[in-house]
Design a binder for these strands. Sequence first.
DNA 1: TTAAACCCTACAAAGCCTATAGGTTTTATA
DNA 2: TATAAAACCTATAGGCTTTGTAGGGTTTAA
Lengths: 172, 172
Amino acid sequence: MKLSTKGRYGLRAVLDIALNQDEGPVTIHSISERQGISERYLEQLLITLRKNGIIRSIRGFQGGYVLNRETKDISVGDVVRALEGPISPVECVEEGRSGVCNRIDICVTRNIWEELRKAMNQVLDSYSLEDLVRMFKEKNCNKNKEDINNNIDHINNNFDININKKIDLIID
Amino acid sequence: MKLSTKGRYGLRAVLDIALNQDEGPVTIHSISERQGISERYLEQLLITLRKNGIIRSIRGFQGGYVLNRETKDISVGDVVRALEGPISPVECVEEGRSGVCNRIDICVTRNIWEELRKAMNQVLDSYSLEDLVRMFKEKNCNKNKEDINNNIDHINNNFDININKKIDLIID
DNA sequence: TTAAACCCTACAAAGCCTATAGGTTTTATA
DNA sequence: TATAAAACCTATAGGCTTTGTAGGGTTTAA
């Protein structure tokens, strides 16, 4: 019951594009470096995402990838489904596949899988790339604040130590 | 993002036991026949379920399997987790595995996976075997009612046809 | 004693995941 | 127009997991 790397890497790649496309098309090479994913593998994921209308490519020199819709109009579910196919715990509850099984009228476990499928899609569709971008910026900002605070603490501690030493010296 | 046959077959097997254990321990052979799952494969699943405390075995002649707890105290989640391991879209949000990834404080996709994990477990834990048994009986009952109604309709139709024929004869 | 069940270990085919490799096409710019 | 950067395409291969199959035990109760 796991996502494959396609879905995980792919979402990170799309978020990376969202965060960096202001400075022009985002190249596979640069995503690869920032995200630590092989260029060759990334290439396949991005082609799939393009074919599914999530991103758009600009070919040739100074080309790269940009989002094909606004961040608010791309959900996490869109990205995952593009790369992994339908999000569903079993085949028989995928849309348009009720014919897969001839025991539908007897099967009760199917009801559970159907509810699970809905819940999964609901969670993933409730987050847009816009949300992820905001979350990222908040986290990064807080992280910077923490870093700064840690530095200040560090400086203060050193200051205390030093001033005490000096006071000691003065007192002495 | 699919369950394996372990989880699907296993849940059906456990439900089968729940439905049939009133007449004594349920044998692998009988589950295999009713559910259309190979005895040998079923055997492995049932051993796993026994080791996880879901079912209990009675060995020897006229042995078989019974549930180890009441139906209301066994959730679908219990069964699936016993057979498939933790229900989680990615490793890094499984309980006690936050150390898997060193990017937790930067990673925002993780937040999504964590919420997805919770939602999945919540759905599966909200259904007990008791619920499944009730659902099964309702479905079966309705199915029988339908069958009976269909039969009655059929008989009525034939009666109409026949009575009309007779009336025609009389009129003639 | 023996039938009928459970128990254990090994293994193998098939499919999917996770890339890797080599080559082609497109395009801005010098 | 040449060049280099970049996306694009197809094939393939190693490894892992799934999905069983097979053969041989062990235990129990009639």
